[in-house]
Design a protein around this nucleic acid. Structure first.
Length: 104
DNA sequence: AGCGTGACAATTA
DNA sequence: ATAATTGCCACGC
């Protein structure tokens, strides 16, 4: 079995990330208002090839965690960036909360 | 139980 | 706008 028992918290986070459509982003705090660091841990543990759109997860101020590598992926998906191109325009790119996934 | 660490967030200077 | 500080909470040893 490849995927084994991820904790419910971890699984919930993965699902939330997977739910981000192309062209949009969500912040760590939006996914887990109380434990944004858990999200980072999950992403790091998952790796770049985990099937998760990790590049669509950005910080609360619109800055990205993985630098140019992530920015390139975001630009490729037409994600609205702020002048300067270093941060995401959250006002336009932030994906609304999908039904069924309410933050604690 | 304590201690250190972290793909964070909000505040203050 | 950048840097430093504090708060937060979950994980691993």
């Amino acid at each position: 079995m490849l995927g084994v028992a991820d904790d419910e918290r971890t699984e919930r986070i993965k699902a939330a990330i997977r739910a981000i459509p192309e062209g949009f982003v969500r912040t760590y705090g939006d996914i887990a208002p109380r434990t944004p660091r858990l999200v980072g841990k999950v992403l790091r543990d998952a790796g770049d090839e985990a099937g998760l759109p990790w590049h669509r997860v950005v910080r609360a101020d619109g800055s990205v965690t993985q630098g140019e590598r992530q920015l390139k992926l975001l630009r490729a998906e037409l994600v609205p960036l702020r002048p300067g191109g270093k941060k995401v325009d959250l006002e336009d790119a932030r994906f609304p909360l999908p039904p069924g996934e309410s933050p604690l």
